[in-house]
Deep mutational scan, measured.
Amino acid sequence: MTEYKLVVVGAGGVGKSALTIQLIQNHFVDEYDPTIEDSYRKQVVIDGETCLLDILDTAGQEEYSAMRDQYMRTGEGFLCVFAINNTKSFEDIHHYREQIKRVKDSEDVPMVLVGNKCDLPSRTVDTKQAQDLARSYGIPFIETSAKTRQGVDDAFYTLVREIRKHKEKMSKDGKKKKKKSKTKCVIM
């Protein structure tokens, strides 16, 4: 069974824990209790493949930012979460993405942009803004509501699919490099 290491990042209060708990335990946590770091595991079937999701729910508070490099190193894919009623959390996505790329030393890291709290009427981040940002990053965008469960499975499952595509691409690139290195030079 394939294991996928997913990391949920975003500013404090955007609903990272609520999304994760909704996926794992099928219930909505409405009281806000700032996370330092929590880890969850769940076995699911995605596109006919049974897999184990190892999900790291991270601290959004700035005082825990020193811990970010460590979990970013171990993560295979990242859910970059903002709240649709919090423009600052949307603007912060850029910083999370840049930090992930720096730590992973790669421009090509599996990510999904997630606009959470889409059940709320007080939207300050337009869907088109988020779609445009995701398009500019070359990553999928999904709106979710941890409260109603809308888009929750889709967000995590899409990230797994992005990781699969990335692994497939990397193995193809690896095979191309191996083929090239088999060419021999004969000096007579």
Rank of each mutant, 00 (worst) to 15 (best):
residue 50 T to A: 10
residue 64 Y to Q: 02
residue 31 E to P: 11
residue 31 E to G: 13
residue 83 A to I: 04
residue 176 K to M: 08
residue 154 D to F: 06
residue 40 Y to N: 00
residue 13 G to I: 07
residue 57 D to I: 00
residue 56 L to C: 03
residue 117 K to L: 14
residue 53 L to N: 15
residue 108 D to R: 12
residue 39 S to V: 02
residue 15 G to E: 01
residue 61 Q to N: 15
residue 131 Q to I: 05
residue 63 E to V: 04
residue 119 D to C: 08
residue 100 I to H: 06
residue 133 L to R: 08
residue 110 P to G: 03
residue 71 Y to T: 11
residue 33 D to W: 01
residue 113 L to G: 02
residue 34 P to I: 03
residue 118 C to P: 11
residue 122 S to A: 10
residue 16 K to I: 00
residue 187 I to R: 08
residue 169 K to M: 06
residue 75 G to I: 04
residue 78 F to G: 01
residue 135 R to I: 13
residue 108 D to G: 06
residue 51 C to D: 10
residue 31 E to Y: 13
residue 164 R to N: 03
residue 125 V to P: 11
residue 112 V to I: 09
residue 82 F to L: 09
residue 128 K to T: 07
residue 19 L to R: 01
residue 132 D to E: 05
residue 186 V to E: 15
residue 47 D to G: 11
residue 169 K to C: 06
residue 187 I to S: 14
residue 109 V to W: 12
residue 170 M to E: 13
residue 87 T to R: 07
residue 13 G to E: 12
residue 72 M to N: 07
residue 46 I to H: 11
residue 65 S to Q: 06
residue 61 Q to V: 06
residue 131 Q to C: 06
residue 188 M to A: 06
residue 5 K to S: 05
residue 156 F to E: 02
residue 51 C to E: 10
residue 76 E to W: 10
residue 69 D to M: 10
residue 6 L to I: 14
residue 160 V to I: 06
residue 104 K to H: 15
residue 154 D to P: 07
residue 105 D to W: 03
residue 79 L to P: 01
residue 160 V to F: 10
residue 182 K to M: 03
residue 84 I to S: 12
residue 166 H to D: 11
residue 113 L to Q: 03
residue 104 K to N: 15
residue 157 Y to E: 12
residue 123 R to N: 14
residue 119 D to T: 14
residue 43 Q to L: 05
residue 182 K to L: 04
residue 2 T to M: 15
residue 31 E to A: 15
residue 34 P to C: 02
residue 152 V to D: 07
residue 112 V to T: 08
residue 30 D to T: 15
residue 134 A to V: 03
residue 45 V to T: 14
residue 131 Q to T: 07
residue 102 R to P: 02
residue 37 E to N: 01
residue 129 Q to R: 08
residue 60 G to Q: 00
residue 94 H to Q: 13
residue 80 C to V: 07
residue 49 E to L: 04
residue 35 T to D: 00
residue 130 A to S: 06
residue 107 E to Q: 04
residue 63 E to T: 07
residue 52 L to C: 13
residue 124 T to V: 09
residue 2 T to H: 13
residue 55 I to Q: 01
residue 177 K to S: 05
residue 63 E to I: 06
residue 39 S to L: 15
residue 49 E to R: 08
residue 11 A to E: 14
residue 77 G to D: 02
residue 48 G to R: 10
residue 59 A to I: 00
residue 24 I to L: 05
residue 162 E to D: 05
residue 180 K to M: 06
residue 116 N to D: 13
residue 137 Y to K: 08
residue 13 G to C: 11
residue 13 G to A: 12
residue 46 I to N: 11
residue 58 T to H: 00
residue 97 R to A: 06
residue 84 I to F: 12
residue 134 A to D: 09
residue 40 Y to K: 00
residue 59 A to C: 03
residue 130 A to V: 09
residue 25 Q to R: 04
residue 42 K to A: 05
residue 108 D to Y: 05
residue 156 F to K: 03
residue 52 L to A: 13
residue 127 T to L: 07
residue 58 T to K: 00
residue 83 A to S: 14
residue 170 M to L: 05
residue 65 S to N: 04
residue 108 D to L: 06
residue 61 Q to M: 07
residue 8 V to N: 02
residue 108 D to Q: 07
residue 9 V to D: 02
residue 174 G to S: 06
residue 122 S to H: 09
residue 123 R to H: 10
residue 163 I to T: 04
residue 59 A to N: 02
residue 128 K to I: 07
residue 117 K to N: 12
residue 81 V to G: 05
residue 169 K to G: 13
residue 77 G to S: 07
residue 45 V to R: 11
residue 19 L to C: 12
residue 28 F to E: 01
residue 120 L to Q: 13
residue 49 E to I: 04
residue 62 E to K: 06
residue 99 Q to G: 03
residue 8 V to E: 06
residue 16 K to H: 01
residue 48 G to E: 08
residue 79 L to Q: 00
residue 78 F to Q: 03
residue 135 R to N: 07
residue 127 T to F: 06
residue 15 G to V: 01
residue 5 K to T: 03
residue 182 K to V: 03
residue 100 I to R: 03
residue 35 T to Y: 00
residue 2 T to P: 14
residue 173 D to Y: 11
residue 135 R to C: 14
residue 18 A to M: 11
residue 52 L to M: 14
residue 11 A to Q: 05
residue 3 E to I: 09
residue 133 L to Q: 07
residue 133 L to S: 08
residue 15 G to M: 01
residue 92 D to V: 04
residue 175 K to I: 12
residue 116 N to S: 11
residue 20 T to Q: 01
residue 165 K to V: 13
residue 130 A to M: 12
residue 70 Q to P: 09
residue 30 D to A: 13
residue 75 G to K: 04
residue 121 P to A: 11
residue 159 L to T: 08
residue 65 S to A: 14
residue 57 D to C: 00
residue 133 L to I: 08
residue 82 F to W: 09
residue 28 F to P: 01
residue 169 K to L: 06
residue 59 A to V: 00
residue 177 K to H: 10
residue 42 K to T: 07
residue 114 V to R: 00
residue 67 M to F: 04
residue 101 K to N: 08
residue 120 L to S: 13
residue 181 S to W: 13
residue 32 Y to L: 02
residue 116 N to G: 06
residue 55 I to D: 00
residue 48 G to S: 10
residue 120 L to P: 13
residue 33 D to P: 00
residue 27 H to T: 07
residue 16 K to E: 02
residue 47 D to Y: 06
residue 114 V to Q: 02
residue 17 S to R: 00
residue 21 I to R: 05
residue 157 Y to A: 12
residue 170 M to D: 12
residue 51 C to N: 07
residue 38 D to K: 00
residue 134 A to T: 07
residue 86 N to D: 14
residue 7 V to H: 15
residue 48 G to C: 06
residue 69 D to L: 06
residue 20 T to N: 03
residue 139 I to G: 12
residue 129 Q to L: 06
residue 25 Q to D: 07
residue 141 F to D: 02
residue 69 D to R: 08
residue 44 V to C: 10
residue 159 L to H: 03
residue 63 E to Q: 08
residue 19 L to I: 11
residue 106 S to G: 11
residue 188 M to N: 14
residue 186 V to W: 05
residue 80 C to T: 04
residue 82 F to Y: 08
residue 71 Y to W: 14
residue 40 Y to F: 01
residue 129 Q to D: 14
residue 21 I to P: 00
residue 108 D to T: 03
residue 184 K to R: 06
residue 186 V to F: 06
residue 160 V to Y: 12
residue 67 M to Q: 03
residue 39 S to K: 15
residue 99 Q to F: 15
residue 185 C to L: 02
residue 44 V to H: 09
residue 63 E to K: 07
residue 117 K to I: 15
residue 104 K to T: 13
residue 68 R to T: 03
residue 18 A to W: 00
residue 133 L to H: 15
residue 139 I to N: 04
residue 26 N to E: 13
residue 173 D to V: 05
residue 62 E to R: 03
residue 87 T to G: 06
residue 66 A to M: 12
residue 153 D to N: 07
residue 42 K to I: 08
residue 117 K to S: 12
residue 65 S to T: 09
residue 105 D to E: 06
residue 89 S to A: 15
residue 105 D to M: 15
residue 154 D to R: 05
residue 59 A to R: 00
residue 133 L to D: 10
residue 76 E to Q: 09
residue 137 Y to W: 14
residue 165 K to S: 05
residue 16 K to V: 00
residue 106 S to H: 11
residue 13 G to K: 07
residue 71 Y to L: 03
residue 54 D to S: 14
residue 113 L to V: 12
residue 76 E to F: 04
residue 128 K to L: 06
residue 178 K to F: 10
residue 30 D to Q: 12
residue 37 E to I: 01
residue 87 T to N: 06
residue 36 I to S: 00
residue 21 I to E: 13
residue 79 L to H: 00
residue 136 S to G: 13
residue 44 V to L: 15
residue 5 K to F: 02
residue 121 P to V: 10
residue 18 A to L: 00
residue 14 V to F: 13
residue 21 I to C: 12
residue 178 K to C: 08
residue 162 E to V: 04
residue 7 V to F: 03
residue 174 G to W: 03
residue 73 R to I: 09
residue 92 D to Y: 04
residue 71 Y to K: 12
residue 77 G to K: 02
residue 139 I to A: 05
residue 177 K to T: 14
residue 61 Q to I: 04
residue 9 V to F: 14
residue 181 S to C: 12
residue 105 D to T: 03
residue 133 L to G: 06
residue 41 R to H: 04
residue 136 S to A: 05
residue 39 S to Q: 10
residue 111 M to C: 07
residue 32 Y to V: 01
residue 132 D to V: 05
residue 132 D to R: 05
residue 48 G to Q: 11
residue 34 P to Q: 02
residue 128 K to W: 05
residue 74 T to G: 10
residue 59 A to W: 00
residue 185 C to A: 13
residue 9 V to N: 03
residue 61 Q to S: 15
residue 42 K to M: 09
residue 54 D to T: 13
residue 56 L to N: 01
residue 26 N to L: 05
residue 10 G to S: 13
residue 41 R to T: 02
residue 57 D to Y: 00
residue 27 H to S: 10
residue 32 Y to G: 00
residue 105 D to C: 04
residue 45 V to Y: 06
residue 24 I to M: 12
residue 58 T to N: 00
residue 28 F to N: 00
residue 64 Y to A: 01
residue 58 T to Q: 00
residue 50 T to H: 12
residue 132 D to C: 04
residue 44 V to S: 12
residue 45 V to E: 13
residue 96 Y to L: 13
residue 54 D to E: 14
residue 137 Y to R: 12
residue 60 G to V: 00
residue 75 G to M: 03
residue 157 Y to N: 08
residue 4 Y to R: 13
residue 25 Q to K: 03
residue 11 A to Y: 10
residue 127 T to D: 10
residue 23 L to S: 15
residue 18 A to I: 04
residue 43 Q to V: 09
residue 126 D to I: 06
residue 164 R to C: 07
residue 31 E to Q: 14
residue 132 D to G: 06
residue 40 Y to M: 00
residue 35 T to F: 00
residue 104 K to D: 14
